[in-house]
Write a protein that binds this DNA or RNA. Structure first.
Lengths: 125, 125
DNA sequence: TAACTGTATTATTACTTCTAGTACAGTAGT
DNA sequence: ACTACTGTACTAGAAGTAATAATACAGTTA
């Protein structure tokens, strides 16, 4: 499914959250699609089930997946995500990153071009 | 100068790097301005000098400040920062964040508006 | 009932952060 | 030369976090 860098300074469960988020955002994992079970994914990646669960819990609290006891964990339908808290964080991060990009010499045109690139890729894939 | 959240999950030195970066980017700390010495800032914030040094070392490696033995640490002039590695990271982060923002329901117009806002604030303050 | 699912708890190990103390080297003013 | 600043480096230990391991409980499905 994907790889993790165990030697990284970043915690494994954070890497997992990021990777899964990317897969969901880029529609590799479709709406309501079932994710691998905690134990199954743990076996595939040869890491502890508790670590997987921690990542799933985080993803659920951020609104990216939902979990049903006895059934499994599923991708939260994109349109129905209503996470104002998460949106606020993203806006703040965007502002910081814009300031940083400009400081490092990027023009707003370059940045806008990146945005268009990503926007196009969303429908396409 | 600023405050740190010791109870945060984030390492103190990382918080320090972020805060100082913001001050530099937003021109609160001007070009070639002298930063507080390692020991001085440590005393002000009541944290260990080694922690400050770690933050300064990180900021220097990212091109935001430069340090002169016996003299002090200073803000790197913005125009002369040429950190292609850092720029690459920022581009990647921007792409991820754009995808995430769109997924959470932001339109590219909203995102572009944020960019304009930040761009205007750079000259203004 | 059996075999799956998520979830929770406790204990232990491993790793990172942070602190503490010390030391060395360069700069500036006296 | 002396003093008092600067940055930098190193070792050792304490404290906190991440990751593992083992177990248990609850809900679903066939």
């Amino acid at each position: 499914m994907f790889e993790l860098d165990v030697r990284s300074r970043k915690p494994i469960y954070e890497q997992l959250v990021e990777k899964l988020k990317q897969l969901i955002i880029n529609d590799v994992l479709k709406e309501d699609e079932k994710l691998p079970s905690v134990r199954e994914l743990a076996q595939q990646l040869t890491i502890n089930p508790n670590t997987i669960q921690k990542a799933y819990r985080e993803l659920e609290s951020q609104g990216y997946i939902y979990s049903l006891k006895g059934k499994g964990s599923f991708v939260h339908p994109s349109g129905k995500v209503d996470n104002e808290e998460e949106l606020k964080k993203v806006r703040e991060e965007l502002k910081k990153l814009f300031a940083e990009a400009i400081y490092l010499g990027m023009t707003s045109e370059e940045i806008a071009a990146l945005l268009q690139e990503v926007e196009g890729g969303q429908q396409d894939d």
